[in-house]
Structures are given as C-alpha cells and as structure tokens.
Design a protein around this nucleic acid. Structure first.
Lengths: 238, 238
DNA sequence: GTTAACTGTTAACGGTGTTAACTCTAGAGA
DNA sequence: TCTCTAGAGTTAACACCGTTAACAGTTAAC
C-alpha cells in the first residue's frame, strides 16, 4: 500500500497549489487569491484546479485549515520549549506568541480571523475544515488555562456576582473546561475575549488613531488580564 | 439659487440608489450589494449608476458614511433623551445602545466594522467618506468620556505603572482628549477596546462556541469596565 | 496488452465592474 | 421663443471571475 508515483505527484501538486495560494494571499490580500490567479501562478489552466479542489471556497478552506494548524503548531512549540514550570508564564508566552504571529503574518491573520461570519447558524458549517482547525487552535488555549487552574486554582467571582443566567450558560461548558467552576470559566473567557479583541484591533488598524505602536499598550493590557486571572504577574519585558 | 427640478430628481434618485443598496445589504450581506444588483433593483441599467457614483467602491463608501451617521445620530439621541445628569450612566447607555444597534442591524454592522482593513497606510485613505464618518462616530464616545472625566475625575493608573513608552504615546493624544492625563486616556482606551472587541465577537459569531446568548456576559463585562473607570456602577438591568 | 482511471486541455456559460459611443430630454441663454 | 448645451439614460463591448462539459494523453491496474 505504498504511495504510487502518481500519488506522490498529486500530493506535490496539491502542496504547490496551496503554496501559490498563500503567496498570493501575503502579497495581495484575501481578494488576490483567486482560482485563475492560482492557476496562472503555476502555469495551469483554471479548470485543472478542480481535480484538486471542488470549488474556490474549498481551496480557501484548505488554506485556512493549513494556516490554523501552522499557527497552532508554532504556539505549541513555543510553550513546549519553555521549560518554565510556571504555567502562568506560559499564558503570557502564548498571548505574545499569538500577537507576534499576527503581526508577522497580517494577511494570513486576516484570512483566519477577519473574514469569518459564514452564517449565524448554517447546517453543515460545523464540519468545515477551517472550523475544525479553529477548534484545534482554541483547544491549545483552553488546555493551558485548564492546566493553570488545576495546578493552582485562581480566585474567581462568585456565582452571586455573575448572576444565575450567566452561571447557567458557563456551567454548561464546565465539562469542556475540565470541570472548572463557572467563575473560573468566566475569567478564562475574559482572557480570550480581551486578548482576541486587542490583537484584532491592532492588526486590522483599528488602533492607529490612538496609538502608532500598540506594543506597550498590549503589554499593559496583558498585565491587567493576568492580574484578573490571579497570576503572579511577571513584569513583561520587551 | 434654489434647487432646480432636475437637482431634486437627482437627489431623489441618489437616495433611491442608497436605499436599494441598503435593502440588498440587509437581505443578502455585503456581497449582495453589487452594482448590477442595485441597478436591477430600481429598473436601471448598470452604467446609469455611474452618473451618481464614480465606482462601486464609492457607492459602498457612501453607504458606509450614511450608516455611520445614522448610528451616530441614534446614539446621540439616546444620550440626549436621558435626562440623567449622571454622565457615568450615559456611558452604559451608549455601550448598550451600540450593542443593541449592532444586534438589530448585523449586516450594517458587518459592513461598518467587519470589512475594514483598507491598507495599513494608504495615502489618501484618511479622507474617504467612510473614514470621516467613523471619526464623527468615535467622537461621540470620546466627548462623553471627556465630559465624565471633567465632571468627576476618576482614579487612574500612575505614569510609573504605565511605563514611559505608553505614557509618551498617550500624552500625544491629550489635546484630542480635552487635556486628560495619560492614565485617564488609558482607561478611556480600555473602555473602547473592550466594548468594541466584545460587540464584534458577539455579532460576528465568535462567541457562539461558549455562549449561545452573550447578553448576560456583556452586562457583566460592562460592569467590570465601568468599575475600571471608577463609575458608581449602577446594576445593569436587563 | 487492454482497459479504466487520472490529469490536463479547450470552449463555453453566466456573472461581475467598467468604459465608450450614442440617444433623448430638460434647462439655460440669446 | 428658438437654439444649444449639459445631463440622464441607453446599448454594446471589454476584461475579469468561478464553474461546467466535452475531449485528449498518460499512467496505473487487471
């Protein structure tokens, strides 16, 4: 059952297609990665690509999945290489790693996080390759937060403070969050929403009117977020 | 110099075009508002629209500007009608108003805040009608925050806490923020980034994996943000 | 060695934004 | 009032896009 010569060639061509698509993405943005442009890039006629992807959208989905996996791998390697047993420090590492990746690859980041909104509630959109890769990506942060919690449970708002409605919703995710209580899930969610929102605003240029370089602001915010998680708050160095 | 009959007809057609464009926007999303679709909507041929807009992009810019102004007017009216002299309460009102508008008009919100990213630094992109309207919109929040500050200055982080780099950048905006100190501008910026990020994530469906209805979470976050601004924190009712 | 599957081609369809050239009508100036 | 110009609309066409159908050549399988 070894891969035949044709199989290897097919895999190579498939990789070439995605490489060309990414090249177009970084050089000209999301709109530049068209079916015909990709075909032109590797000297093929446009219909030839339909032997590899059933549609333009499928090609984009494959590219999205690849980029998510690349980002996920980069962040996991970042966390692995750091031998620091302090899991809290790894949260800073991960947050900074995500920001660095986003700033180094703005076009890719824009494709992953800027063009979402497929539909509010479509039927078979859960099993899109891009969505699944996004879940794998999110799981990295979730896993680390859960580890931090189980290593040293951080102080969290009480159920009275959160209110019954929010507690009910958060408790429903307790299983996914390895048994964390609603208050801890709430803080984890804050960590993600603030981190995500901040990076999106910076990369998408929504902060330029106030800050020409959002680096210092990001550090300050990360410090605040860490405080909210009860971490020992290492002073973030440049 | 009264407007002639032709001038009035021209203005009417222009309004019809934008109305049709918006109709297509709400029914089919940003991608549905095409030049030909708009022309089809009012029984015209596509090139006729070039008597009113130099390009498809210009039509979208005009629509964006109109929507920004509509949103701005709605929020200003909201703040005006509230006779509450407590300016802090108006910040809650404005935040909730923005969220309500976003949830009530997801397609419009998507056009305004989801498709940004023209270029990092384009030359003449500062004077695009959409950008200018966005500045008018942002000024509403800025003005209210400045009023709150001048009515009752809220406690803010010291310059030592923020660090010299961040202080330098924030102080550069002190004039725009009616003479507020760096620490107060920092908190105002937090108010905006957290509010903006939260609403974007909710409207764009980036919170569905955790919360099916983000209303309670939004309230809790708004409470936190208000606390950070030193407001007297009125319990947000549904 | 024949056959079937795979990879690529060309031609074409309907869709898009956009331009050029033309017609017709309404408003302005003599 | 008559003329003439400017404006609003048309048709035809161009270049691009994603996509499909029908066809040719090569490669693997039986």
């Amino acid at each position: 059952m070894e891969p035949s010569r044709r199989d290897r060639q097919r895999a190579a061509t498939l990789a070439e297609i995605k490489a060309a698509a990414r090249r177009l993405l970084v050089s000209g943005g999301v709109g530049a990665v068209g079916l015909r442009a990709v075909a032109r890039e590797l000297g093929l006629t446009p219909p030839a690509l339909y032997r590899y992807f059933p549609s333009h959208e499928a090609l984009l989905q494959a590219l999205i999945a690849d980029l998510y996996d690349e980002l996920t791998a980069a962040l996991m390697e970042l966390a692995q290489n750091e031998a620091d047993p302090d899991l809290g420090a790894q949260l800073y590492l991960l947050a900074n790693g995500l920001r660095d990746w986003a700033l180094a690859h703005p076009a890719e980041f824009g494709l992953l996080f800027g063009t979402a909104i497929p539909d509010p509630d479509a039927e078979g959109h859960e099993d899109l390759p891009g969505h699944q890769a996004a879940m794998r990506f999110a799981a990295v942060f979730k896993a680390l937060v859960a580890q931090v919690w189980h290593q040293k449970p951080f102080p969290h708002p009480s159920e009275q403070e959160l209110g019954p409605v929010l507690v009910a919703q958060l408790s429903r995710k307790s299983e996914y969050f390895d048994g964390m209580p609603a208050g801890a899930i709430y803080l984890s969610l804050n960590y993600w929403t603030r981190l995500y929102g901040l990076i999106c605003m910076e990369v998408f240029g929504q902060l330029h009117w106030a800050l020409e370089d959002a680096g210092a602001y990001f550090e300050a915010q990360l410090f605040e977020i860490g405080q909210a998680l009860g971490l020992d708050c290492p002073v973030p160095e440049a």
